[in-house]
Design a protein around this nucleic acid. Structure first.
Lengths: 169, 169
DNA sequence: TTGACTAACTTCTATTTTGGAACTTAGTAT
DNA sequence: ATACTAAGTTCCAAAATAGAAGTTAGTCAA
């Protein structure tokens, strides 16, 4: 399968990757979250070529993650802002950051901390169940076919790892 | 900057991407979560070439996300299992899935639903603040320098989008 | 004991994507 | 007129990925 066809998969993870799944896109979005909204600043921060950045920004605008806004008429200058769709990528950035903090940070510790301004604490956000309000552990979850996949009944029981291989999915 | 040097950035998001940031890796991990643990099954599900899959699996084992376990001696057969480090990628898969469900699912609706077996409900997990227990909205968060980045004080106030550009970070 | 089949790969080559360096555009500032 | 800036584009080389075919270590059926 070619990468271009990835969004034809019946899988929301794959479809998400079709938009933000290349090398630099997530880091560009992270930069915009952190306040770097202009071409030159992002380019310098990430150390990528103008060509690549230009391409990625065009893609992000096309896909509705960013908008290109003139912040100055003469000379013409532009900045990139997150749309609602883009802002909604925040949890993704957060969980990537948490995983990196836990598994990839050296002894120096995490480079960045998150602060919940509402309550004032420095926190590590957790995935919780909106129904029973408890923290979600991976082994407590199952996946089942949703509206768009009625044919198969059970898609998979996540995270059971029996010694045998008799999976049939 | 070359992609190989990406893990030298002082950023947990970048370091996470250095492990799972290429085209197929996340989808491979997703498949293993869903119970597809064998080479051939994953290959068929994703439609990628054996070469590519072989490469990626080798990488995932090297990085401690998966382990390669013989489930049969003669003939020699292997399956791939998630390590704790790999299981800890579950929130990442979940938030990608949620974003895809919200922004990329057609009118057919989400392909897959998550069930919290503990409470029995079909749910959409939410990021919450472990301190004040409320759901986290992107605009309520700030990022600040952590242990490994003491020099700069404020890394960025996330998600404020003033009309002007006077950011100095 | 040959021939077909299977899972888990590897090797080779063509195509696509990414990276590096230099150049362009539309201005301002001296 | 000369230098400087932000936001790019163009061109070519290098690296990563895709497609097709071949390999290894076995089982199974005739």
């Amino acid at each position: 399968m070619r990468w271009k066809e990835i969004d034809t998969m019946k899988c929301s993870v794959a479809r998400t990757l079709s938009v933000i799944g290349d090398r630099w896109t997530i880091l560009i979005v992270r930069d915009v979250f952190l306040g770097l909204r202009r071409f030159e600043l992002i380019q310098r921060d990430l150390g990528l070529t103008p060509h690549r950045l230009s391409d990625r920004l065009r893609g992000l605008v096309r896909d509705g993650i960013l908008t290109r806004v003139a912040y100055e008429k003469r000379p013409p200058r532009f900045e990139y802002r997150l749309t609602e769709k883009g802002i909604d990528l925040y949890p993704l950035i957060v969980v990537m950051m948490e995983w990196g903090d836990r598994w990839m940070a050296g002894r120096a510790g995490p480079p960045v901390e998150l602060v919940h301004r509402t309550c004032g604490h420095s926190i590590k956000p957790e995935l919780t169940c909106p129904s029973c309000k408890s923290k979600i552990e991976p082994r407590e979850m199952s996946a089942q076919a949703g509206p768009a996949l009625k044919s198969r009944r059970t898609v998979g029981r996540t995270l059971e790892q029996p010694p045998v291989s008799g999976l049939k999915l």
